[in-house]
């Protein structure tokens, strides 16, 4: 019992401090809404545990939980094991997302990468070179690296807690993107 309470208390800090990043989340959503409005799609990726985040994000946008919300184009790059292991075997594990992005991405798209493994970083770098909007979700333990347009960092070094707060962040990203999508294009947006 006490162990459960203690485990839950460890979630309070990282969950609460997200409130300081609300403006960053809002800015990401404004930019994402602009991309969708221009016909862009969302391409999501991550390795290991983050695979499930990528797939959860994709289904969130394609099949909204709130009836009547517009279905938005989103794909995760982690579903097709044949392609992933094919790329890993030929051009290397670090190319699994970049290789798919080179084929699938258009400049008006959005690339969302979870975590900071070499494959995700290379994917985000290729996306950025190709003109995509780049969004990175990370944990505190991840060291700063390649620049992305919107970096959202969870302040915890426990990968499970990071994942839990990431879920709140991507639920908010989905919901707020719809809010801005239904508004006139914000001034100064790319």
């Amino acid at each position: 019992m006490d162990e459960v309470a203690a485990a839950l208390e460890r979630r309070v800090g990282p969950g609460s401090v997200l409130v300081e990043d609300v403006d960053q989340v809002l800015r990401a959503c404004q930019d994402m809404a602009v991309r969708f409005r221009r016909g862009g799609k969302l391409i999501v990726f991550g390795s290991g545990g983050a695979v499930t985040d990528a797939q959860h994000v994709a289904v969130e946008f394609v099949h909204p939980v709130i009836v009547g919300k517009q279905a938005l184009p989103a794909v995760s790059l982690t579903n097709d094991v044949a392609i992933v292991t094919g790329i890993a075997g030929s051009t290397g594990l670090d190319d699994i997302f970049a290789g798919q992005l080179r084929l699938l991405a258009s400049p008006e798209d959005i690339a969302m990468g979870f975590g900071q493994c070499a494959g995700v970083l290379r994917g985000l770098a290729v996306a950025r070179e190709s003109g995509l909007l780049t969004v990175g979700l990370r944990g505190e333990r991840d060291v700063p690296a390649e620049p992305v347009d919107h970096l959202l960092v969870v302040r915890s070094d426990d990968p499970l807690v990071v994942k839990e707060v990431h879920m709140t962040i991507y639920h908010l990203l989905w919901e707020l993107t719809h809010v801005f999508l239904e508004q006139p294009e914000p001034e100064g947006a790319r």
Binding site: L8, E9, R11, G15, V22, E164, T168
Partner: peptide
């Protein structure tokens, strides 16, 4: 958004 963040923090704690 701030309300939703507070809501999930409280909900987790209540578990």
């Amino acid at each position: 958004t701030e309300e939703k963040i507070a809501e999930i923090v409280a909900l987790r704690r209540s578990m």
